[in-house]
Design a protein around this nucleic acid. Structure first.
Lengths: 254, 254
DNA sequence: AATTCTATTTGCGCTGGCGCAAAGAGGTTT
DNA sequence: AAACCTCTTTGCGCCAGCGCAAATAGAATT
């Protein structure tokens, strides 16, 4: 289920400018992605011709909470972090979205502004379409509706899980769970373990688990001493997922 | 936006048996509810003829997490609490649903089991239909899709808010917020304030705010001394909403 | 009226994890 | 290579709020 990234090559070459439609978007960009997989080549062509593609630097916002939801997106490469910011300026990360998923489809849930801010967790590429096309997509493209609502359901499940975790678990369990979820969803097998596929700081992890960067740092240090994880600056590798599972569920193993 | 409860009278008379379709469901039951409000009388008739109505005692489950989602529901009267139960047996309340809303429409988000358990917070009445009719409703009834997805969006917003609250606020603020939300959504004006329209214990409130019944009790006692609320067994009345708003957002006064 | 059950209140001690502070360490720019 | 910046680590003290325990108070049942 990996994205053929060489397809994106020409997009990446585009450089940092927020550029509009490119010479030629290849149909194979979309053909394997669930929302579009049932469509004929001609339909894909139409869809691509209406799309705008753009590259986002690490940390760049794809859209902002509260902005009018005038476009919806398909993430082609990279990872996006969905965050909310409180009145007091604290950030809370709601979700990570991997390549191959739709995002910013506020329209699907009857909203006309984005409910949260989306930030590229790593250099990313996304296609986008004007929101007015949303209903067309839904009506005209077989399987599109079903798939997007599945995505919606999945994200609701994720949110629910986070609520339950925040409500019932200790910090150590929450961080362990977050780490496990990250390697499941965005993990990359490397020598000696599984590494999170994008740069992630202690601060980021703390925003994902409702704690402080200090506590996350202490936990990771402890785990590293016990050989559960290895970490460098902005990189975390899980060496012993099973031990983490134990931590995430049960009592502290000491 | 109140439900004409006399319409339900004959249903209530039905007693406690889990009964099937009743002699005659009146069309005015649905005509004013958003998902159906655009429909012709004949359509409503068809919908009602396919519906099963049932009364739920306080505390009775409408459906259980994990069960096959073979029916979807419209709450006609009462309130339903949506809860999840952790492996360790703790309950977490996700949401309260007031009369007039759909629930259990797992199908809409591509699921075939219920993602949570729904329990009647007070004696309640709901219509239900077999899930296989869902797609028919969506396709045939104008405005139905839009409305249900609005509901979905609203609930996602609620969940998001809870996540942010749990992640960033102190217990006192969370309880104040929960109380405010409850009186906004399900409040009933009574002498000297606004009362939550269904029986709710300290325990319930603690499951809604991720704390313990003890802490909730202490907070309510304190607030009662200061005249912000009045409470009896299973009943809470908010006398000074504004002061609660202050508590819910800012620093503890005093 | 007595019993039982559920809901609420309150006291007290303990601790997980936050806040503060300061020092290291790895990267990047000049 | 020096200066700067961001990220990480670690120590220490404190306190919000939990856990435990026990008393009280309404409702419901007998």
């Amino acid at each position: 289920m990996e994205l053929a990234c060489n397809l994106c090559q020409n997009l990446v070459m585009d450089g940092q400018a927020p550029r509009k439609t490119l010479p030629r978007l290849d149909e194979s960009l979309l053909i394997h992605l669930p929302p579009f997989s049932r469509l004929a080549k001609r339909q894909i062509r139409t869809i691509l011709d209406q799309a705008t593609s753009r590259r986002y630097d690490e940390g760049a916002a794809v859209f902002h909470e509260g902005d009018p939801a005038d476009r919806f997106f398909m993430l082609l490469d990279g990872y996006v972090r969905v965050i909310r910011i409180t009145e007091t300026g604290e950030q809370v990360t709601a979700l990570h979205i991997p390549a191959g998923q739709l995002l910013g489809f506020a329209r699907a849930i009857g909203r006309d502004t984005y409910p949260a801010t989306a930030v590229a967790a790593t250099e990313s590429i996304a296609l986008s379409w004007p929101t007015r096309l949303w209903d067309t997509f839904l009506a005209d493209y077989d399987g599109f509706a079903t798939e997007t609502y599945k995505t919606l359901g999945y994200r609701m499940g994720e949110m629910n899980t986070r609520i339950v975790e925040l409500a019932t678990q200790q910090v150590e369990q929450r961080v362990a769970n977050a780490l496990l979820r990250l390697i499941n969803q965005t993990g990359r097998k490397v020598d000696g373990g599984i590494e999170i596929d994008f740069p992630i700081t202690r601060q980021d992890l703390s925003e994902l688990t409702a704690t402080t960067l200090h506590t996350v740092s202490r936990l990771l240090s402890g785990w590293e001493k016990r050989g559960l994880v290895e970490s460098r600056r902005k990189r975390i590798k899980v060496c012993n997922p099973h031990a983490l599972v134990v931590l995430s569920q049960g009592q502290a193993s000491d």
